[in-house]
Simulated scan of single mutants.
Amino acid sequence: MIRLTDQEFLTIVNYVKNNYGINLSNKRQLIEARMYSVLAEKGMKSFSEYMTLIQQKNPEEIIVLLNKLTTNHTYFMREPAHFDFIKTKFLPLQERVNHRKLVRIWSAGCSSGEEAYTTCMVLMDYFSLGRPGWDFRILATDISEKAMSAGKAAIYSAESLKNVPQSWLTRYFVKQGTDQYRINDDVRRHVTFQRLNLMQPFPPMQQFDLIFCRNVMIYFDQNDRNKLINKYYDMLIPGGFLLIGHSETIQRDSSKFIYLEPSVYQKG
């Protein structure tokens, strides 16, 4: 086993924090365990040797590092109160005020796509009930190339679908083998995946009606959280919504967002 020295640990933590905003200061065991196989495969004898390669800005190796050190755990219908909010409050509001009949949603830190696809199916259900003429587009972004590939493939295990209604399985999924399901093309055409580092300037994008950023900011320090929240504020239309994880909060004195209910905020 290749051991991670104190100095090597600090080097990795500082590199990931400074470049990607992710705080790994309490993840020493995770770093050591997940990166061991990468070092062994390359015949390296120390983490310092590997970080020399990373600091040469080798893009393929940086992708490997981020894929190993970011946790992409999610499932369909996670934190269902948010999807109830979309169905009972957000979408009825859109019917009243959104004269474009175009709804734009961003799933930031989307992992392997379950959040974006769940949102899409909620919208498809809602607008299929005698509400013609509406279009909706969902942007799904994550820093992990592995997560992006999984989202684009749109194939999921039966375990990750345990909270999905049977009507959705019939309407929106195609069974693959014995215990996997693929999102059908009607759903997939509404969702676009794009790799994005939230700590870098956002590329040119139109403003959104709603942004998800759930269970992402727990990996950032407070200063980076505040910066990111304010960037989201600018990316929302007036009256747009930001949904964060139920274990997360926004400091009221550091943001112009209006608190509506736990984990739901609105741009004034």
Rank of each mutant, 00 (worst) to 15 (best):
S128R: 01
L123G: 04
V97H: 06
S107P: 02
K87E: 15
H99W: 06
A158R: 06
P92M: 14
P132T: 11
S128A: 11
G133C: 11
A108Y: 03
S112I: 15
Y126R: 01
R137P: 02
L102I: 15
L123E: 01
A158C: 05
S160R: 15
K152D: 06
G113S: 10
R104A: 13
Q94A: 07
T88P: 04
F90H: 00
G151T: 08
R100Q: 13
H99I: 11
L123W: 03
D135W: 02
I138C: 06
W106F: 15
R104P: 08
S144I: 07
N98C: 15
G113D: 05
A150Y: 11
M121H: 04
P132L: 11
F90K: 00
E95R: 09
K146H: 12
M124H: 12
I143H: 02
V97I: 15
D142A: 04
R137A: 13
F90R: 00
A153W: 07
E114W: 05
S112E: 09
A140W: 01
G151V: 10
A150V: 04
F136S: 02
L102V: 15
K162W: 06
Y117V: 11
G113H: 03
I138S: 03
M121N: 02
K101N: 12
K89E: 14
W106I: 07
L102M: 13
A150D: 12
N98Q: 05
A108R: 00
V97M: 12
P92H: 09
E95M: 09
H99F: 15
S144R: 00
K87P: 07
P92C: 10
V97K: 04
G133Y: 01
R96G: 05
P92S: 14
R100C: 08
R131N: 08
F90P: 00
L139C: 03
S128H: 05
K89H: 13
E115V: 01
T141Q: 08
